[in-house]
Amino acid sequence: MKKLLLFALILPIWTLAQNKQTPRSVVNLMKEHVTCDWAETTVDVFKTGNPDTEIKGIAVCMFADMKTLQKVVEMNCNFIITHEPIFYNHLDETDAYATDPVYHEKREFIENNKLVVFRFHDHIHMTEPDGIYAGMMNKLGWKNYEVNDAGTLYKMPEKQLADFARELKGQLGLQTVRVIGNPKMKFTKVGLAVGAPGGARHIQMLNMPEVEVMVAGEASEWETYLYANDATTLGKNKAVIFVGHIKSEEAGMEYCAEWLKGFVKDVPIHFIQNEANFVTF
């Protein structure tokens, strides 16, 4: 009888331990739910912390900057899934910051608060549908205008460039947008180029007959900016609206948070919106 009672007491504890969610177990679930094979070479790896830590809460974001990390701690989360690098370059290489106080204080904050950070970049783009484009399409309400099933090309009712730019500014909660092109230009064909794919890919998209206006994240000013300005001066019916890297992809990470809720159970999951990187005057 005593043995049965002891077993009855131990069983709930053992079951609870078996059901404990860790960053590693969540990432393993993510690997099962993406539609692509998990790449051997990828930036989608743990960046900081112990992957076998018990999760208190999950925070999903675009950039794990200091303001976001502070919010994570305030919300009692300890596992962060971020789309972009945490330490200022694509591979999060930190040798150059050996004596940098900003890097060291950020690292210290992460370690003191026992935060685990995982980057989810390559595979959210590689899965079908591309989670970043799917989230942006939902946010902007463009689903009925999609023409290529990839979230990159759209055919819309005729619009004027200036009106469209103002519309995007409101939808994305932006302080400002940068527009290259004739403000009175009318168009129906739109290309979406999120993040920072580079000037060559931007120019390739602008060259497509299916694109009159490209909505882009960010670019080097001597590449896409220069090309779009030349196209405008030459009388081409082409334009670019830059909404910034964060806002061109952030709705995709909000989509990611909802996606995670479909298969990660018994753990709070929060989407954290990044604040603007700069102020305007």
Rank of each mutant, 00 (worst) to 15 (best):
M1C: 13
L5Q: 11
L5K: 11
L6C: 08
A8H: 09
T15Q: 08
L16A: 11
Q21Y: 04
T22A: 07
T22M: 15
S25N: 10
N28H: 15
W38I: 08
E40G: 09
E40V: 11
T41L: 15
V45D: 12
F46A: 01
F46N: 00
K47E: 00
D52F: 10
D52E: 11
T53D: 15
E54I: 08
I55T: 02
G57V: 07
M62S: 13
A64W: 00
K67H: 13
T68W: 09
Q70K: 12
Q70V: 06
K71H: 10
E74M: 14
P85A: 12
I86K: 01
N89T: 08
L91H: 15
L91S: 07
T94Y: 00
D95M: 12
D100V: 05
V102C: 02
H104L: 13
N112V: 05
L115V: 02
V116N: 00
V116M: 02
V117E: 00
R119A: 03
F120W: 13
F120H: 05
D122I: 12
I124Y: 04
P129Y: 13
D130S: 05
G131V: 03
Y133C: 04
G135K: 06
W142F: 09
K143G: 14
K143L: 09
N144T: 09
Y145K: 04
Y145M: 09
A150G: 06
Y154C: 15
K159P: 01
L161R: 05
E167D: 09
L168K: 04
Q171R: 09
R178I: 13
V179T: 08
M185F: 06
K186Y: 02
F187L: 08
T188P: 00
T188L: 03
V190I: 08
V194P: 05
G199A: 14
H202E: 01
P209M: 09
V213I: 13
V215Q: 03
V215W: 02
E218F: 06
S220A: 09
S220I: 06
W222S: 12
E223D: 15
Y225G: 02
A228E: 01
L234V: 00
L234G: 00
N237E: 14
G252Q: 08
E254M: 10
Y255D: 14
C256N: 08
A257Q: 11
W259H: 04
L260N: 04
K261E: 11
G262S: 10
P268E: 04
H270C: 13
I272G: 01
Q273W: 02
